[in-house]
């Protein structure tokens, strides 16, 4: 999920940047002082996750954890992803600065979708539903990201279709692994600290995170 400089075309980069600015505006609006540490911790996790790579066929892929970020942060996934990616570009030259907008959108938008899909499920149900919700969030995160990247590549150039297909294929195992991991983490949090998932209140509850739109 880290497009390097010079791959995507200007219109795609522009669209990505615009969407990211929008997402950041919404996310920062919901990020009051009490929620900042939570966002920082998730940003750190996102930062580290992309560094753990495992080989799939000829390529090497990494976990994105954006499904989990979405479930925990909702719209605030935008600032978290943005900071993580910016630091990766700065410290490891991973991705790039012109692509920061596009990369952030690709990872954060599916996170927001996952949060709207799954946080309600978590509020509604019991342990089994929490596992399912976690798996779905993980799947939406990876699938959404992969689809958006494929879209960005093909919009840049028709001939990138083959590359996009390869990209999708290579991320199928990532989808499986990340669904499992997200499910496990969500089930664990459901048992140990449900406030983080929006159940039983928590820091400003569901506001901005895609849960039931009532303030707690």
């Amino acid at each position: 999920m880290h497009m390097s400089e010079g791959v995507l075309s200007a219109p795609v980069l522009g669209a990505g940047a615009a969407l990211t600015v929008g997402g950041l505006a919404v996310g920062l609006r919901f990020m009051d002082n009490r929620r900042v540490p939570e966002v920082a911790v998730v940003a750190s996790a996102l930062f580290v996750a992309s560094l753990i790579r495992f080989p799939v066929g000829p390529a090497s892929v990494h976990l994105t954890l954006n499904g989990l970020a979405g479930i925990l942060l909702g719209w605030m996934a935008f600032p978290a992803v943005f900071v993580a990616l910016a630091l990766q570009a700065l410290l490891f030259q991973f991705g790039g600065f012109t692509t920061l907008g596009a990369n952030t959108t690709v990872m954060a938008l599916p996170a927001v979708v996952a949060s709207y899909t799954c946080r309600r499920m978590l509020r509604a149900g019991g342990k089994t539903l929490s596992i399912i919700a976690g798996a779905i969030a993980g799947a939406i995160g990876v699938a959404g990201g992969v689809v958006l990247i494929a879209l960005a590549l093909v919009s840049t150039e028709e001939s990138f279709k083959g590359l996009s297909m390869a990209f999708v294929a290579v991320h199928v195992p990532v989808l499986a692994v990340e669904s499992a991991i997200t499910a496990i983490v969500v089930a664990f949090l459901w048992k140990v600290k449900p406030e983080l998932l929006g159940i039983n209140g928590g820091i400003n509850g569901d506001k901005g995170r895609g849960g039931i739109l009532k303030s707690d």
Binding site: V36, V39, A40, S44, F47, V48, L51, V83, L91, F92
Partner: peptide, 18 residues
Amino acid sequence: RPGITEIIGGTGYIIGLA
């Protein structure tokens, strides 16, 4: 390869920014 130093550095950066 980004080593443990870079990881700790990046995390520290994030905490500092927060």
